[in-house]
Simulated scan of single mutants.
Amino acid sequence: MSDRAFIAQLDGYGLTMAEIHYHRPDAPSLLQLFVWQDYDLAPDFPVLFAFLDHWHREIEAALHSVRVAHNQLIRPAEWRAVDGVISIQ
């Protein structure tokens, strides 16, 4: 059985986090923070925009701002050439 997150990363998805600031319906002068995290495709972010569309349709809280961070976790390995060999005995 394979992990959904690993399969998503192999398909090009990266870990996306969004800080969603919103106004509470019962106290509009207060800002609340909701942190959302899922695997998504940058730079279009279809999963995030689907979530924000759902928020807009189904949740009474008005959005104030959204901050997005994204990191593609699987990428080519980094290497550097080493000039010499050290033997440890």
Results as ranks from 00 to 15, higher is better:
15 L>V: 03
41 L>Q: 10
86 I>K: 08
47 V>I: 09
61 A>W: 01
43 P>V: 11
30 L>N: 13
71 N>Y: 11
42 A>P: 05
73 L>H: 10
1 M>D: 15
5 A>V: 04
28 P>L: 11
54 H>T: 13
77 A>I: 04
24 R>K: 13
22 Y>S: 08
55 W>G: 07
79 W>G: 08
70 H>P: 04
18 A>I: 03
43 P>G: 14
46 P>M: 06
26 D>C: 05
54 H>K: 09
64 H>Y: 15
11 D>E: 15
22 Y>W: 11
5 A>E: 12
38 D>H: 12
61 A>N: 14
35 V>K: 04
85 V>D: 07
24 R>P: 02
52 L>Y: 07
50 A>T: 14
30 L>D: 15
33 L>M: 13
33 L>K: 13
56 H>V: 13
4 R>D: 06
70 H>F: 01
1 M>V: 14
21 H>Q: 07
37 Q>V: 13
57 R>C: 10
74 I>C: 01
24 R>T: 14
52 L>H: 10
7 I>K: 06
58 E>G: 05
17 M>R: 12
82 V>Y: 04
49 F>A: 14
66 V>C: 11
56 H>A: 15
74 I>A: 10
23 H>Q: 15
32 Q>C: 14
11 D>K: 04
2 S>Q: 06
30 L>F: 11
40 D>F: 00
54 H>P: 00
74 I>K: 01
62 A>Y: 05
32 Q>W: 07
81 A>S: 12
68 V>H: 01
81 A>H: 12
89 Q>K: 07
55 W>C: 12
80 R>G: 11
66 V>Y: 05
23 H>W: 10
38 D>R: 02
37 Q>P: 02
23 H>C: 09
29 S>C: 11
64 H>C: 14
83 D>P: 03
83 D>V: 09
68 V>E: 00
82 V>P: 01
24 R>S: 13
57 R>H: 13
47 V>F: 00
27 A>E: 04
53 D>W: 01
61 A>L: 06
84 G>Q: 09
